[in-house]
């Protein structure tokens, strides 16, 4: 284990559309960097072992467990966190679907769920319920029983296809 000091590296990452540069210890995870240095706390620490999906962000459009990715690995790449997706009054259609379908309870899994689903919809804009369940299998939720989450992703996918057409 590295203690106190470790090798320092510098990185340049586009986070939610803004270029961020940092000098940091080479062993720091992307999740730690986002949460602690950038105060982007939407990505949650649920396990730190790649088993819960609460920390999912999109790295170049693909969902990753940011607790298992080194900040260094994001160098030169694009990161999207939940904070970059939408805001009150201008929610992303998938966020709006989560609100409308009551897919949110405690909300701790929600940012990771939404981003993981967004990753799926980037590759497959019209997934079946089974495909959604498979894509979200690494994102645990202890509150909802998943049914309304699957409904929300189906609904959000529909809204996104609709939006793409108009």
């Amino acid at each position: 284990m590295t203690t106190q000091t470790g090798e320092q590296i510098s990185i340049r990452v586009t986070v939610n559309g803004r270029v961020e540069t940092a000098e940091l210890r080479a062993d720091r995870s992307l999740l730690e960097w986002l949460r602690e240095d950038l105060d982007l706390t939407g990505a949650k620490l649920g396990c730190n072992e790649g088993e819960c999906g609460a920390c999912v962000v999109l790295l170049d459009g693909r969902p990753v467990n940011s607790c298992l990715v080194l900040a260094a690995e994001a160098d030169g790449r694009e990161v999207l966190t939940i904070e970059g997706l939408g805001r009150a009054g201008a929610l992303h259609p998938l966020q709006q679907a989560f609100v409308d379908r009551a897919a949110v309870q405690c909300g701790f899994c929600t940012p990771g769920m939404i981003l993981c689903a967004l990753g799926l919809l980037g590759e497959n804009p019209d997934p079946s319920p089974d495909e959604i369940r498979r894509a979200l299998a690494g994102n645990l939720c202890r509150c909802t029983g998943y049914q309304q989450i699957v409904e929300a992703v189906l609904d959000g996918a529909g809204r996104m296809r609709e939006g793409a057409r108009t």
């Binding site: 706390t41 949110v104 939404i114």
Partner: peptide
């Protein structure tokens, strides 16, 4: 839900 937007935007702050 009164806290839905907080939770889908990441605005909701938990203790950590």
């Amino acid at each position: 839900r009164v806290d839905a937007v907080d939770k889908v935007t990441g605005a909701a702050r938990y203790t950590a």
